[in-house]
Amino acid sequence: MTSAGTRPAAAPHLGRATITVEGASTDRIATAPRRRRTRFSLWHLVLMPIALLFLIPFVQMFLAALSPAAELQRFPPPFVPSRIDFSGFVALFTQSDVLLWLLNTVIVSAAGIISHLVLCSLAGYGFARLRFAGRKVGILLIIATIMVPTQLLMVPTYILFANGFRIVNTLAAAIVPWLASAFGIFLMRQFFLSLPAELEEAGTIDGANRWQVFFRIVLPLAKPALATLAIFTLLGSWNDLVWPLIAINDSNAFTLQLGLSNFQGTRQTQWTLLMAGNVVATLPLILFFLAAQRHFVATMTFSGLRG
């Protein structure tokens, strides 16, 4: 965040971040340097309660979503329902446009991820490897924008979307902010800087032009960085609330998060429905996380060490 690119002192962070992109340091997180112990570790007594504490909100969410509605209105409600009941989901899907919102969110995230992967890897490569006028000013400006908080941009961007692009109340208002990001360009640039230049020079000697070198030689090597970029974009766009909230009032263009937050005023005590909605919004990301935990951790590490 702070002084990246303006002072060479930031270099250690950048260096470490680059390693992370290659997936190395996540492996190191997984394997601690301590020697393996055979006796029971007292740390279990610390970690087990903490782990359960972190899981309880999700457990409660799933159990409540699968409870008969009447049981949650009882006092006190049981933690584990007497039987599994899908009426919360039925109410959710029949009484609201949640399927439409889910589709909208999938569209926003898919567009964001595809656009990020294409545009940010092109720009990252250009800034890392190509020599052309304006290159240095360009990357400095882009890194500087990481320092500008979204909140400062809310009002002017809303006006721009409303009066300039005229995309307020359409799904485009949720998509446009996720087409590319300074973070994405920076991440890809750091990755390409870490690749040995000889690989590309070999391609250039063989007569390939810059585009062929990029698509045939460089991009296939960039898979770990692209995975990080995709996850960063997925998390941000899937969970985004601020942009849709200020720019979309039409429930046909609601995203899942916007629809959910709108439930709160209108269905305050319909707990099974609310929790079913939470499950629909959260489960895809939880499953994704369980399947690709290593890449998620790499994403978190990089977004922390980006400055």
Binding site: I50, A51, L52, F54, L55, P57, F58, Q60, M61, L235, W238, N239, L241, Q257, L258, L260, S261, F263, Q264, L274, M275, G277, N278, A281, T282, L285, I286, F288, F289, L290, Q293, F296, V297, M300
Partner: peptide, 17 residues
């Protein structure tokens, strides 16, 4: 995993929860 997985929960889901 237990400690990391809440990271994917959105503000909307966390708020309602």
């Amino acid at each position: 995993t237990a400690i990391f997985v809440p990271f994917v929960a959105s503000a909307a889901a966390t708020g309602i929860l």
